[in-house]
């Protein structure tokens, strides 16, 4: 089955990222195809290359990168939600003359159309976070 995930929760603040990751992992383990994870609302914080949790806590961003790399999953970050929260790629950084860019490798900034596209192309769209 083709599955996509919408994630609205920031890592560390809520359980949403943890639950979404475990769900995605379980889908892959069962032989399902995870097409896309769409990071929206506070979920965009999952894409920050600058998060640095203590060593004995989960590094969510790196974990997403690893899972996506292994299973060829799109990691798409909503541009409007990301800009509001200070998650930017090089293009956006230059466009708005910001002092730096901080999106983690493997994540792609795009529009809300990608959420709809995921809903249309997947057999299931599962939402995590509130």
């Amino acid at each position: 089955m083709n599955i996509s995930i919408a994630l609205y929760g920031a890592p560390h603040s809520s359980e949403a990222s943890e639950s979404a990751y475990r769900f995605a992992q379980a889908c892959c383990a069962k032989g399902h195809r995870v097409l896309r994870i769409f990071f929206y609302h506070d979920g965009v914080h999952n894409a920050s290359a600058l998060s640095m949790p203590p060593q004995d806590e989960t590094q969510h961003t790196e974990r997403w990168q690893a899972l996506a790399g292994e299973h060829n999953i799109d990691l798409v970050v909503c541009v409007a939600a990301a800009l509001r929260r200070g998650i930017v790629d090089q293009d956006e950084s230059e466009r708005y003359e910001l002092p730096s860019a901080n999106i983690a490798r493997g994540f792609e900034i795009s529009g809300l159309g990608q959420l709809l596209d995921a809903a249309v192309k997947s057999d299931r769209l599962i939402t995590f976070g509130r």
Partner: peptide
Amino acid sequence: SSMARDALDALLAASVYDQ
């Protein structure tokens, strides 16, 4: 929270895809 606004934004964005 911004969730209600985010829902509306997503809905309006979806409206252009003929679903």
